[in-house]
Write a protein that binds this DNA or RNA. Structure first.
Length: 306
RNA sequence: GGGCAGUUACCAGAGUGGCCAAAUGGGGCUGACUGUAACUCAGCUGUCUUUCGACUUCGGUGGUUCGAAUCCAUCACUGCCCA
């Protein structure tokens, strides 16, 4: 069996994966590569639950990558992630250290582990405005007219169909090259947390983040000129708090709806991880409440024995 | 004490004699996803059954009727108004 090239730690939000990954990294003299589609943004700290203090173990900062690499409001996507991941990964390898991929964005994790072949397709505003008012049926026809589909994403909504057309169109016109990253052999560890405890933690964490100034964080982003729509697109915290800031949602409704949305998000994350297992990834689940030292020695043993 | 309104599945809430296991929304569960993924979308959600279907439900009880969530009586509870 081929030796592991890295360790992946995954789990739903509020499962404690970051603090575990940091302790593990500290113990293995490893570095962490984040797999979180929202923590890439600077100034989006409380709402994305960055908890940068988690990376400090016994006074040492565990090196981490792909956090705070973009300004809020900028665009990011799987392609960029795949690229950035490999840049960080090869640096870490060059230093002779172990890389720990840790995060909750299932698609980003799968993209790098599986070696998705992607193309850097920028947003095509002209194309989008042209497709804006078309029905899903029309869009499906347009997409079909491009011939071979370049992906297998469910094209079940106009939004997804438009992006698929954008990609098909770009592929044709520019004749661009796809990324060519190899799949990676990773030990995958999942943090297993019972649903009721996960839900309880999510609720508690939401309330403490509100106390920590989550509303101010959003206010500040708005004050800097970031458009409400962009913030709303970021989802969850940024969506509901922005709606509240814009006067479209009362405080209590915001808290209530946001809490529900985060629970639903955590469920979707689990659906993705189970899907990965169905697609052939072996995930080693460890209980969320197993003592850290025990988890570290277990993971270390798995990692070394491949 | 008197008057009126109400009591429907986890919640909200339609339904006012047969087409009702009961609209719709929310929640919950399961799932899809190689492209903005903290997105977006789909299915299920009384019980048993893979399906067909069978069975038990619409506050309790007792009636009317071929047939009742729907009509009548009565009891209980809730809300509002008058005392």
């Amino acid at each position: 069996m081929k030796p592991y090239e890295l360790i992946t730690i995954l789990g739903p939000t509020a499962s404690g994966k970051t603090s575990f990954a940091a302790r593990l990294a500290h113990s293995l003299n490893a570095e962490i590569i984040s797999a979180d589609s929202r923590q890439v943004y600077r100034q989006m700290d409380i709402g994305t639950g960055k908890d940068l203090s988690d990376y400090e173990i016994n006074g040492n900062i565990v090196p981490y990558h792909l956090i705070d690499i973009l300004d809020a409001g900028e665009k990011y996507n799987v392609f960029a992630y795949q690229h950035d991941f490999h840049q960080a990964f090869s640096q870490i390898c060059r230093r002779g250290r172990t890389a720990i991929l840790c995060g909750g964005t299932g698609m980003y994790i799968e993209a790098v582990l599986k070696g998705y072949r992607l193309l850097d397709v920028p947003e095509n505003k002209e194309l989008r405005s042209r497709l804006e008012n078309k029905s899903l049926q029309e869009l499906t026809q347009i997409l079909a007219s491009y011939g071979a589909l370049h992906n297998t994403t469910d094209v079940d909504t106009a939004q997804r169909a438009i992006r698929a057309i954008e990609i098909a169109d770009y592929t044709q016109v520019k004749n661009a090259h796809k990324t060519d990253f190899e799949p990676l052999n990773s030990l995958i560890v999942g943090i297993d947390i019972p649903r009721d405890i996960r839900r309880k933690r999510i609720s508690e964490r939401l309330h403490s983040r509100l106390k920590e100034g989550m509303l101010d964080e959003v206010q500040q982003l708005l004050a800097q000129g970031i458009s409400p729509d962009d913030l709303i697109y970021y989802g969850l915290e940024y969506k509901f708090v922005t709606l509240h800031a814009m006067g479209q949602l009362g405080y209590n409704d915001m808290v209530q709806q946001l809490e529900i949305a985060i629970h639903q998000f955590a469920k979707r994350q689990m659906t993705w991880f189970r899907g990965m297992e169905r697609r052939g990834f072996r995930i080693h689940w460890l209980p969320y409440d197993m003592p850290a030292e025990q988890r570290i020695s277990q993971v270390t043993a798995w990692y070394n024995h491949t």
